[in-house]
Amino acid sequence: MTAEEAVDATPHLQGKWRKGLQALRPEDKPHIQAADTRALTGSFDLDSALMRLPEHALANRWDFGIGYLHENRDAECLYWVELHTASDREVDVVLAKLRWLRNWLDGDGKALDAFERDFVWVSSGSTHYTLNGPQRRAFADLGLRQTGGILSIPKDRR
């Protein structure tokens, strides 16, 4: 199953798959840099797709997913991206979003749960963290990667 097929098989996401980064707002696109844009299989706006559903309307929802086919992989990887201010006061919000995403992947999003993935917090402005700090390691323990302002997707996945 491709990521596009998985999205179409997911409740409330049918028809939400877009080519390349077209699911992202124009101002969000500069935050994503792919080594090979042709390998960007597509993207979907999870936040917008679920925001009107009563069970998710008030939740801290994750922003979007991006599919990428690395040269050293046979199947697409999904980059789950949350574009958010990177400051101490936002930590709890982003962690709540991550919990929501993982719960959703465990339920309605199960078709997308099988794809190799990264959960990435991309800073929408300045990053008010010291990158050497224990905060970043605490995020890592939860499976969350913080990249600063740019998510660079390489050709090969390490």
């Binding site: 993935r117 050497n132 390691r137 890592a140």
Partner: peptide
């Protein structure tokens, strides 16, 4: 180094509990 280490651990954690591919 710290950045690479955190990224590697985050990736391992993120993928440790995903479903097997059908």
């Amino acid at each position: 180094f710290s950045g690479r280490a955190s990224a590697a651990v985050a990736r391992a954690v993120a993928n440790s509990d995903r479903r097997p591919r059908s």
